[in-house]
Amino acid sequence: MIPADALRDEDLLCYCTRLTVGDVRTACKANAWPPPEADRTGKLCTGCMGDLQYLLREFASDRR
């Protein structure tokens, strides 16, 4: 489990598509990942790929 203070919705996750942690959380909550404008998140510079996969797992487990 991620400590609450380490997961801020305003934090930028993908520096290429400018997606924030909150955007990922909202999309997962709505069962709508990826949003249409964010389907290449993690695939461009690849620097956020690890964190993106981590968050998708965490937010999916929140929904269970």
Binding site: L44, C45, T46, G47, C48
Partner: peptide, 17 residues
């Protein structure tokens, strides 16, 4: 430069890793 710099509109998909 590690994160960013490859905006979607450029569409570069090199193997950055």
């Amino acid at each position: 430069a590690v994160l960013g710099g490859v905006p979607d509109r450029i569409g570069a998909t090199g193997m950055n890793n």
